[in-house]
Design a protein around this nucleic acid. Structure first.
Length: 948
RNA sequence: GCCGGUGUGGCGGAAUUGGCAGACGCGGUGGAUUCAAAAUCCACUUCCUGGCAACAGGAGUGCAGGUUCGAUUCCUGUCACCGGCACCA
C-alpha cells in the first residue's frame, strides 16, 4: 500500500490527463484569439508577412455527427496551417458549414421539423466536435451557406451571371448592358435571323435573354419522382440519382440553366496551369470532352415537311466516302416531322414511342444490342452522291453533337454492329489489317476508295485526309470545321424547399425581372409543409407559399425602372441546387461580415493573389490580358484539401463561377485554387465468408492462432477491407477514440496510418503505438510519479545530432503532406532520447517540431519547461547541416550486385581509397581467388560493386 | 470496353536521381522489473535450408521477360484489386 500506485498514475499521460491538457489549451487559444487571421487594415496587420490560405472542404452537417474521414483531411490541413504560422506566415484557415440540401429536407417531409431546426442542431454538434480537435481555425469567420447574410451573396453572384453574356471573340463574360450597347451601335451583329434593328421590343428582350449566362431553357431534364426534383446530368449515375439511387425519368421542363459550355475551352486550358492531382485534371478534361471535327450537311432526297437536310458531327470526315447510312436520335426533329406526316409505318411509330418513354434505367439495364427502325427516308452522301437510308436508333443521343450521325460501319464499332444487325453495306475507305466485314477498323490509316470527280483522298493519311475533306466541304458550303463538347449546360433549378431562392420574378406574360441588389436576400418563406406538390408536372414546395409567390414588383424589390411597383408578379418557386453555396464560400471567408460587398477587394487581393517568387505552386499561366501571369500564380487558395469524390462536380462548378467573377472584375485570379489535395478514404476491416458474403465485425472473434472465426457457425472467415457501414458495424466514431486516448493521439494516428492521399484501413489496434509514443514524449519532460520536470543538463551528442536530422526531415515532409514519415522520424528521435533524456533546450526545439501534429501536448510541455507564448506562433526550429554529417560510414561491398562484405570508412573517403579498401578486404580476396576484377564501380558514400 | 491508380513481411506502411529492401508502428518471441500482473524498459522478429549456437547458404517488392555493374524504382507483356467514364459519333 505504501508504494502508492495511484501516485504513479497521477502524472501519467492518460486519456484523462490528455483531455485536461487539451481542453485547457483549447480555451486558452480561444480566449487569446490565437488563430485569428488579420486582414489588411485590421489593427496589428503586418503587410510584410507572406500569406497562406489553407482551406478545407467544409462539411455538410448531417445528423450522424463527424465521421473519421472528416478529421483526416482537416488534421492534414491543420498541420500545414500551424507549420506555416511557425514559419512566419499570415495564415487563413477557416471553417464553415454547407447546410442547404436534401437530407434535412427529406427529414422535414417525414417529420415536419423545419430544416432550419434540424440543420442548426446538426451544425451545433459538428462545431463542438470540430472544436474538440483543437484545429487552428479562425472561428470568427465561420458561417453557414444557409445564413441569409451568406446566401444574399450567392443570389448576388447569380444575378451577376444573369447580367452577363459571353463574348466569344474576347472569350470572356461582359455585362448585358454592353451587349445591348453593342447591338444598338451596330458593333455587335446578330448572325442569324432578323437583325437587332428589325426586332420589336419583345423580340429584343427574348434575344438578350437568350444570351445570358444564367438563362431559362426549355430542357429535357432528369426528373426523379422519388426525390420530387430534377437532377443535373452529373447527379444521375446509370439512370439513377446520385443520392439515394432512385430511378430517374426524362421529361421536358423550363429551368434555369448556366451557360457553362461557353467556358469549356478556358476550363480545359487552365487545368494545365494549376497544381492539382493528375487524376482530377484528367477527369475534368474527360468531362469537358472536347473533340475537333466537322459539321457536315447531308441533303435529303426529298424534304420531310420543312426539313431538307441533316447536319451531322464527325471527328472522322476522312471516312465520309464510307458512310453507307445515317442515324437520327428518337428525339430528333426529323422524327418529329415524320410522325406528323402520313406514311410513317406503325413499326416506326412504335419504336420511337418506346425509345422515348424508356427511362434511362431501362436503357442501361437492357443489353447493348443495337435496335432501330428504317425511317424510309433517304439522304445523299455528299461525297459519293449515292442515296443512303436514314434510320432512327437510340444508340444516337440527342444530347451530343446534332443528334444525327453519318454511319461508317467499316470504321466505327457501333455503326458496324448496327450494320450487321440490319444487313447494311460496309464499305472500306481506310486501309488497314483485318476484314472490315467482320470487324470495324477504327485506327487511323491510309485512305482508299475515297474519290469522286472533284476530290480524292486516296493514299492520304488520316490527318491529311480529314483536312482535305473539311476544306472540300467548306469550299462547297456543305459543312464547316467545328469543335464539340461533351459538357452540357448546367441545370441549376431544383424543386426543393431547402435551397437558395432565385432573386427573380415573372410578370403575367412570363417575362422575368431580377430583384435589385439592394433588396437581397430574397428570404425563404416560412412553411410548415415541405412535401413537393402533387402534380402532373413537377411542382416545387415553394408553390405552397402562395402569399409569398404572388406579390408585386415593388414588394419583391424589382427596380421601378424595369417594372412599375404595383405590377403583380410571381416569384420563382424553384431553388438553387446544393452546389450553389459551395461554389464561392472560399471567397466569403476572406471577408465574412462585409455588408457592402461579397468580399472587400483589398482583402481579396491579399489572400488570393500569390507572388510567384513565393514558395507556392510553381505553375504559371499563359498571360491573359487581365492577369499578370509572370508575377502571380493563377490560383488563389494556396492549399485546398478534400475528397476526390468532388473531382468533377464541385470543383468544376467552383472554377466556372470563379471565372465569371474574374471576368466581371470581382476577383483577381483566373482560378480559385492553386494547389489541390485529396485525402484518401478511410476504410475498415470486415470479414468475408467463403461465398464472399460479409459478416458484421461483432459476429467474429479471433482464435488463438490469429485466424478469424464467425462466432455463430465456427467457420473461418477472411479479413478484408471494406467501406465503413452501419450494417457491418465497423463505423468508427471519433468521439470514442478521443475518450479513450485523447485527441492528440487521434490526430497523430490519422496522420500515421499511411500517405494522406492513400485509401487505407482503420486499425484500432495500431492506435496504441501512437499513444505510447506520446507517453514517451511526456516522460522525456515529466516525471510520472512527481509531475516534476526531468530535463537533463548536458545534451547527449547523438540525441542532438538526431534532433537536427528530425527537424530537417519534418521541415521537408510537411509541405509535401508526407506526415506519416515525418512522424516516424519523430518516433525514432524519441526512442533514441528515451534513456539519455533531453535538455530543456532540446525539448524546446522538439516540442516545436511536434506542435503542428500534437499541438496540445506540445503546448503543455512547452509551457512547463518555462517557454512563454503560444507554441504555434513560436519559430519553427532550424537545423545545422554540419550536425548531420557523421565521421564514419558503413559501405557495402557487392560482387556482381550481391552484398558480400561491409567496411567502415571515413564518410569523405574518395573513389580510389574505397576501391583499394574493397580489394584489400579478406572476404573479397577470397571470392576473387587471385583473379583481377574486370570492373569496380564505386559510388562514394554509398556502395562498391565488383565485377569479377 | 476505355482511361487512371495501386500491388513490398503475419498486418499498416518506409525506401531522394537506378545504389545496403523491409525505416517507423502494430502483432509476436525472449529478457529485465514485480510476490504476481498491468505498465515500463531492453533485445530479437522477411521467408526457406543447415546448425545447440554464433553463423553459413539460398530466395525475395503481383507474375513472365528485358535494359544495367546494380532494378521496389526504367522498358515490354501479363494478372489482380480499387477509382472514374461508359453507345460522346
Amino acid at each position: 500500500m505504501s508504494a502508492n500506485s495511484d501516485q504513479v498514475v497521477s502524472h501519467k499521460y492518460t486519456a484523462s490527463l490528455a483531455a485536461e491538457i487539451e481542453l485547457k489549451w483549447q480555451s486558452h487559444w480561444e480566449d487569446d484569439k490565437s488563430f485569428r487571421a488579420l486582414n489588411p487594415g485590421d489593427p496589428g496587420f503586418s503587410p510584410e508577412m507572406p500569406k497562406f490560405y489553407c482551406l478545407d472542404m467544409f462539411p455538410y452537417p448531417s445528423g450522424e455527427g463527424l465521421h473519421v474521414g472528416h478529421p483526416e483531411g482537416y488534421t492534414g490541413s491543420d498541420i500545414i496551417s500551424r507549420f506555416k504560422l511557425m514559419k512566419g506566415c499570415n495564415v487563413l484557415h477557416p471553417m464553415g458549414f454547407d447546410a442547404f440540401g436534401l437530407p434535412a429536407e427529406q427529414y422535414a417531409v417525414a417529420t415536419n421539423v423545419h430544416p432550419a431546426v434540424t440543420t442548426a442542431k446538426a451544425t451545433e454538434v459538428f462545431r463542438s466536435q470540430l472544436k474538440r480537435f483543437g484545429f487552428a481555425y479562425d472561428w470568427s469567420r465561420e458561417f453557414s451557406t444557409t445564413d441569409p447574410d451568406y446566401y444574399r451573396w450567392t443570389q448576388w453572384i447569380w444575378l451577376k451571371a444573369y447580367d452577363s453574356w459571353f463574348d466569344q471573340e474576347l472569350q470572356k463574360a461582359r455585362p448585358i448592358s454592353e451587349l445591348v450597347d453593342g447591338l444598338d451601335s451596330g458593333d455587335i451583329v446578330i448572325d442569324e435571323g432578323p437583325g437587332w434593328s428589325e426586332m420589336n421590343q419583345q423580340q429584343r428582350r427574348e434575344y438578350v435573354d437568350s444570351r445570358r449566362l444564367a438563362y431559362l431553357g426549355e430542357q429535357v431534364v432528369n426528373w426523379c419522382p422519388a426525390l420530387g426534383t430534377v437532377l443535373a446530368n452529373e447527379e444521375v449515375i446509370d439512370g439513377r440519382s446520385e443520392r439515394g439511387g432512385h430511378p430517374v425519368r426524362r421529361m421536358s421542363l423550363r429551368q434555369w440553366m448556366f451557360r457553362i459550355r461557353e467556358y469549356a475551352d478556358r476550363l480545359l486550358e487552365d487545368l494545365s496551369l494549376i497544381d492539382w492531382p493528375e487524376s482530377t485534371r484528367q477527369m475534368q478534361t474527360e468531362w469537358i470532352g472536347r473533340s475537333e471535327g466537322g459539321e457536315l450537311n447531308f441533303t435529303l432526297d426529298s424534304p420531310v415537311r420543312d426539313i431538307e437536310s441533316l447536319e451531322v458531327f464527325t471527328t472522322r470526315p476522312d471516312t465520309v466516302f464510307g458512310a453507307t447510312y445515317m442515324v437520327v436520335a428518337p428525339e430528333h426533329p426529323l422524327v418529329e416531322a415524320l410522325l406528323e406526316v402520313d406514311g410513317a409505318t406503325d413499326r416506326f411509330r412504335e419504336y420511337v414511342m418506346q425509345a422515348r418513354n424508356r427511362s434511362d434505367v431501362d436503357r442501361m439495364i437492357e443489353s447493348r444490342e443495337k435496335t432501330g427502325v428504317d425511317t424510309g427516308v433517304f439522304a445523299i452522301n455528299p461525297a459519293t452522291g449515292q442515296p443512303i437510308p436514314v434510320f432512327v436508333a437510340d444508340y444516337v443521343l440527342m444530347g451530343y453533337g446534332t443528334g444525327a450521325i453519318m454511319a461508317v460501319p467499316a470504321h466505327d464499332a457501333r455503326d458496324h454492329e448496327f450494320a450487321r444487325t440490319f444487313g447494311l453495306d460496309i464499305t472500306r475507305v481506310v486501309d488497314g489489317p483485318g476484314d472490315v466485314q467482320e470487324q470495324a477498323y477504327t485506327e487511323p490509316g491510309v485512305a482508299m476508295n475515297s474519290s469522286n470527280d472533284d476530290i480524292s483522298l486516296d493514299g492520304l493519311g488520316t490527318d491529311e485526309a480529314c483536312t482535305r475533306m473539311l476544306d472540300w466541304f467548306e469550299r462547297n458550303g456543305k459543312g464547316a470545321r467545328r469543335v464539340n463538347y461533351r459538357l452540357r449546360d448546367w441545370l441549376f433549378s431544383r424543386q426543393r424547399y431547402w435551397g437558395e431562392p432565385f432573386p427573380i420574378v415573372f410578370d403575367e406574360d412570363g417575362n422575368h425581372y431580377p430583384v435589385s441588389e439592394e433588396h437581397l436576400p430574397v428570404l425563404l418563406p416560412e412553411m410548415d409543409d415541405f412535401k413537393p406538390v402533387e402534380s402532373d408536372t413537377p411542382m416545387p414546395p415553394l408553390g405552397r407559399a402562395t402569399d409569398w409567390v404572388a406579390t408585386t414588383a415593388g414588394e419583391a424589390g424589382v427596380s421601378p425602372d424595369l417594372l412599375p411597383p404595383d405590377t403583380p408578379v410571381r416569384r420563382e418557386t424553384n431553388t438553387m441546387p446544393n452546389w450553389a453555396g459551395s461554389c464561392w464560400y472560399y471567397l466569403r471567408y476572406i471577408d465574412p461580415h462585409n455588408q457592402e460587398r461579397l468580399v472587400d477587394p483589398e482583402a481579396e487581393r491579399y489572400w488570393m493573389l500569390s507572388n510567384r517568387s513565393g514558395d507556392g505552386p510553381s505553375r504559371t499561366t499563359a498571360a491573359g490580358e487581365d492577369f499578370d501571369a509572370d508575377q502571380f500564380h493563377v490560383g488563389g487558395v494556396d492549399l485546398y484539401v478534400g475528397g476526390a469524390e468532388h473531382a468533377v462536380l464541385h470543383l468544376l462548378y467552383a472554377r466556372f463561377w470563379h471565372k465569371i467573377l474574374f471576368d466581371r472584375g470581382y476577383v483577381s485570379t483566373p482560378e480559385p485554387v492553386g494547389r489541390l489535395f485529396h485525402q484518401g478514404m478511410i476504410l475498415a476491416f470486415a470479414y468475408q465468408r467463403d461465398d464472399k458474403s460479409l459478416v458484421p465485425v461483432d459476429q467474429v472473434r479471433q482464435d488463438e492462432d490469429e485466424s478469424w472465426v464467425e462466432i455463430e457457425t465456427g467457420r473461418e472467415v477472411s479479413q478484408v477491407v471494406a467501406k465503413m457501414s452501419k450494417s457491418l458495424r465497423n463505423v468508427v466514431n471519433p468521439d470514442d477514440v478521443i475518450n479513450e486516448y485523447g485527441v492528440d493521439t487521434l490526430r497523430l494516428y490519422l496522420m500515421y496510418m499511411g500517405p494522406l492521399d492513400a485509401t487505407k484501413p482503420w486499425n484500432t489496434r495500431d492506435i496504441k503505438g501512437i499513444h505510447r509514443f506520446l507517453q514517451r514524449v511526456w516522460r522525456l519532460a515529466i516525471d510520472e510519479e512527481s509531475g516534476a520536470i526531468v530535463t537533463i543538463e548536458q545534451a547527449d551528442e547523438q540525441v542532438e545530432r538526431m534532433l537536427h536530422a528530425t527537424i530537417k526531415k519534418v521541415d521537408g515532409d510537411i509541405p509535401k503532406l508526407a506526415f506519416n514519415t515525418a512522424i516516424a522520424s519523430m518516433i525514432e528521435l524519441v526512442n533514441k532520447a528515451t534513456g539519455p533524456g533531453m535538455t530543456s533546450d532540446q525539448l524546446s526545439r522538439f516540442t516545436r517540431v511536434l506542435a503542428p501534429f500534437a499541438p496540445h501536448l506540445a503546448e503543455e510541455i512547452w509551457s512547463r519547461i518555462g517557454e512563454t507564448g503560444c507554441i504555434s506562433h513560436a519559430e519553427f526550429p532550424s537545423w545545422d547541416e554540419t550536425m548531420l554529417a557523421s565521421d564514419q560510414v558503413e559501405i557495402p561491398i557487392q560482387v556482381k550486385g550481391k552484398i558480400k562484405a561491409r567496411i567502415l570508412v571515413a564518410s569523405d573517403a574518395d573513389q580510389e581509397t574505397l576501391e583499394r579498401l574493397a580489394l584489400e578486404n579478406e572476404q573479397i580476396i577470397a571470392i576473387l581467388d587471385g583473379n583481377q576484377p574486370r570492373k569496380v564501380i564505386v559510388v562514394p558514400g554509398r556502395m562498391i560493386n565488383i565485377v569479377p
